[in-house]
Write a protein that binds this DNA or RNA. Structure first.
Lengths: 158, 158
DNA sequence: TGATAATGAGATATATTTATCCAAAATTAG
DNA sequence: CTAATTTTGGATAAATATATCTCATTATCA
């Protein structure tokens, strides 16, 4: 419903990095495999995030990537903006009208603004650290339901 | 941010029909010109909405299309669903996780569900009649700001 | 130094969305 | 009946998003 495949992949990769924060560098190919993301495609997303200073990358043998700063200092919103580009100045009207602003508003303008603010606030408040914790909790719940011996088979993306 | 070009066009066309409800049939090409929508592309969207029983169409000379029922009986949500197809059973997780449900929730699940519900509720509560009234009001405001003599030049889509 | 392993970057391929074109079918005016 | 007009539907094209491939660049190990 909301974001591109690219943004989705990027978020998954960032969560991976947050979960493995302690372990030093991670390889793009490892992450790609863990989340079933096309390897080279992810590589390009990583490049975007590197340019956006969300990731630090290191080439060569023993190279890899890691978060550019602690996971609790990176918000979901930053990740999405790094991938989708900065939000447009003249924000899009839901109905696609050329002229639609707070002054001359389309019928949905006010409600839509509310929704957009809510989305932005939500994404802004979620740090990668929060997501990492949430994922760990989720995996525990899942293990309780299906038995831990099956969890491995499900891989991380579940 | 949110919906496809197709959905946007469809909404615009439906608003047109709602605004011209009294006048009987309207032609697809007229609507396309009014809102600067590619003519043949709109024709296909109209077909979708006809199949979804939101529009009634009539072929041949003096043919055209009109709303299948009064504008206050058609919601924005219905229009969007007609174009984008019905919402998926297994609703997509924001983060793109395979397993994500109310039982085993991803970190954002709850907040996202809230947002989705809000969006759906908003779209559900907006009828085409509401939108038609809103557009008329908007055009009046715009006329006040730039002078009514310029309004014509801006066409309807503004 | 040379072989190896990693990211960076550009070219290319595939899929999906958006846009265009053309002929067929339906309806009505004359 | 004929010609004009309108939607229908299929084929095709262009644009964008997603995916793949290849080679260059950088760094480390032996």
């Amino acid at each position: 419903m909301l974001y591109s495949k690219s943004a989705e992949y990027a978020i998954q990769a960032m969560i991976y990095l947050a979960e493995h924060e302690a372990r030093g560098l991670a390889m793009v190919s490892t992450i790609a495999e863990a989340y079933d993301i096309p390897r080279h495609f992810l590589a390009k997303l990583v490049q975007s995030m590197t340019r956006a200073h969300l990731i630090k990358s290191f080439r060569g043998r023993n190279g890899g990537i890691k978060l550019a700063r602690p996971a609790d200092k990176i918000s979901l919103l930053q990740v999405i903006n790094a991938i989708e580009g900065p939000p447009p100045e003249q924000e899009m009207c839901v109905i696609g009208l050329d002229i639609c602003s707070d002054q001359v508003a389309c019928p949905l303008h006010k409600q839509w603004r509310h929704i957009k603010d809510l989305v932005e606030e939500t994404l802004h408040n979620q740090t990668l650290a929060d997501l990492a914790v949430g994922m760990r909790r989720k995996r525990l719940e899942l293990a309780k339901m299906i038995g831990p011996e099956h969890l491995e088979a499900l891989k991380l993306r579940r």
